[in-house]
């Protein structure tokens, strides 16, 4: 909306990974609109607070999806309310490592257990950017940030192990500089029947510039942590997925996918068959003296 709206004055920094994520998300939603022949207004993007949350205002296209820019950490339960109110909507959460894995952490497990049919795009830059550089769950142990002047005390969280342990039914890993595979993962995640997470390494050029560390830089002799998951990898096998999540480096691709579990709306639909529907007047009559 930036191009249309001079009042909106938020800007991502030059080189921010979130620009790449935006391109992929716009493309994935567009693709879905075309492929499923549904209107753009069937898409809802729910954001939390942080640089990532501004995504909802930055999507530039002729037609806009609905947006909800909520409060810090609560994008998942807001998305649950939207999805359960109308399961026909395509609901996408955009979040960051602070919003999703720190203040919002408590909401991941329950949505995994319900298999809520929404897609979460997590932009992980390993730092709190909007508040100017404090440590986050995915900041490296020992890293000096503005809130850890003598080094970060906690171990770095491994988000993929976390998602697997909690039972998230679709887990993909992407890097913001590779828009095409990221678009494919997002589209795939939106098609997935259940709770899907596309976790994107989206570096912060200002406070935690990890482009070289992730992609490697031969000139500086940096090997690069990111690698493509091999073609013969079986993403439906939980054990392989845990090995993949626990190994060194940052795997790129679909880490885990389980399509066997019913979605939350399917579970509710099934339960509602068991509940006898009674009219208000019948219920009222039940209290007659």
């Amino acid at each position: 909306m930036t191009s249309k709206n001079p009042e909106y004055d938020f800007k991502w920094c030059p080189g921010c990974g979130d620009f790449g994520v935006r391109r992929a998300l716009e493309a994935a939603i567009q693709r879905r609109v075309i492929e499923t022949e549904t209107p753009m207004e069937n898409n809802v993007v729910v954001a939390g607070i942080g640089c990532s949350g501004n995504m909802v205002h930055m999507l530039e296209s002729d037609e806009q999806p609905y947006g909800f820019h909520g409060i810090h950490g609560r994008s998942l339960p807001i998305a649950m309310g939207v999805k359960m109110a109308n399961p026909d909507l395509n609901v996408v959460v955009v979040s960051g490592d602070g919003d999703f894995l720190s203040i919002g952490f408590e909401h991941i497990g329950p949505q995994a257990a319900r298999n809520l049919n929404v897609t979460a795009v997590v932009m992980d830059n390993g730092v709190y950017g909007l508040t100017k550089g404090q440590s986050s769950p995915t900041t490296d142990l020992g890293m000096v940030t503005s809130s850890t002047p003598f080094g970060k005390i906690e171990d770095k969280m491994n988000p993929f192990q976390t998602y697997l342990t909690m039972g998230v039914s679709y887990i993909a890993s992407a890097i913001s500089s590779q828009v095409r595979p990221m678009t494919q993962m997002m589209a795939d995640a939106m098609d997935h029947p259940g709770f899907s997470i596309v976790h994107v390494q989206s570096p912060c050029t200002e406070y935690n510039n990890t482009y070289d560390v992730l992609k490697g830089n031969p000139r500086k002799g940096i090997p690069g942590l990111a690698f493509d998951i091999p073609d013969d990898y079986d993403e439906t096998d939980a054990e392989s997925a845990f090995d993949m999540a626990s190994g060194s480096g940052v795997p790129l691709g679909v880490i885990y996918k389980d399509t066997s579990r019913p979605t939350f709306d399917q579970r509710i639909e099934e339960i509602s068959q068991k509940a006898p529907a009674r009219s208000v007047s019948a219920l009222l009559d039940g209290f007659s003296i």
Partner: peptide, 20 residues
């Protein structure tokens, strides 16, 4: 949502469209 008129519901102070 599901009908035309997409906007952004926003907890930040916003303009007519719902942009911060």
């Amino acid at each position: 949502p599901g009908s035309p008129g997409a906007y952004v519901a926003n907890g930040s102070e916003h303009d007519g469209m719902g942009d911060t």
